[in-house]
Amino acid sequence: MSTSTVQPTDKAGLRRLASYAMLIVYLLFLILPIYWLVNMSFKPNVEILNQLTLIPQNPTLGNYANILTDPTWYMGYVHSLTYVILNTVISVTVALPAAYAFSRYSFIGDKHLFFWLLTNRMAPPAVFVLPFFQLYSSIGLFDTHLAVALAHCLFNVPLAVWILEGFMRGVPKEIDETAYIDGYSWFRFFTRIFMPLISSGIGVAAFFCFMFSWVDLLISRTLTSTEVKTIGVAMTRTSSATGLDYGTLAAAGVLTIIPGALVIWFVRNYIAKGFALGRV
């Protein structure tokens, strides 16, 4: 075995083994906390608090039933989804023409504007909570879905513009020119020819707007109170109440993971691109 001819393959084999070991350890590290949450969501509270069991001894769907029958819980999802979808639609709609302008033309101040958009994606939400609270209170939008949807535009519109611009610059300019020569108006060209060409880009932009709006807690919590109770608020309330209902909390957490987990397969090749604002 120790002859010099097999040594290189030995070494390569060892290296491959080390690679697999590393992947498996990393995957375990990622999966364990999620497994624990899922595990808890199927246990009654008595079992959670009294013994540490790796699989539920008395598996129950009670925690999920709690959520699906209690309006303060399930309406949390409805409220959250409402402002998230509203925000996604607004962000992508206004970002589409803007991204086209950035990718096709140069105009006065274009670079400054593009940079300024980026600074908003990077801005800490904590800086904005107080002014947002005052702004939306003063125009009477406090505690509405629209307020949260508009507030999330702060980071989602820049995100959508940057992502879409990244996709649009990959489309050859000759297509635009040919369409104009053929007598298409800008609007007809844009909706009939251009948008289908970058449909995957639109999908990715919409997905990321959805995601970043969905994961936010700070801004949505600040801008809502009694009318619009988001799922994030419902969850933090449970965790700070005296009698902690861990089972229901875990079930609520599992349910919030589902939208992401459902679409993840379709966007797997675009995730890096989306987080890097369309630049990878």
Binding site: I31, Y246, R268
Partner: peptide, 29 residues
């Protein structure tokens, strides 16, 4: 790719909740 991307798409407060219960000395693994 899919498994790796999973944590990226979990709402941040749920990430907090997951680790809060995971790290507890009484009920966390």
């Amino acid at each position: 790719l899919v498994l790796f991307a999973l944590p990226l798409l979990i709402p941040w407060n749920v990430v907090g909740t997951i680790w809060q219960v995971f790290a507890r000395i009484d009920i966390g693994l």
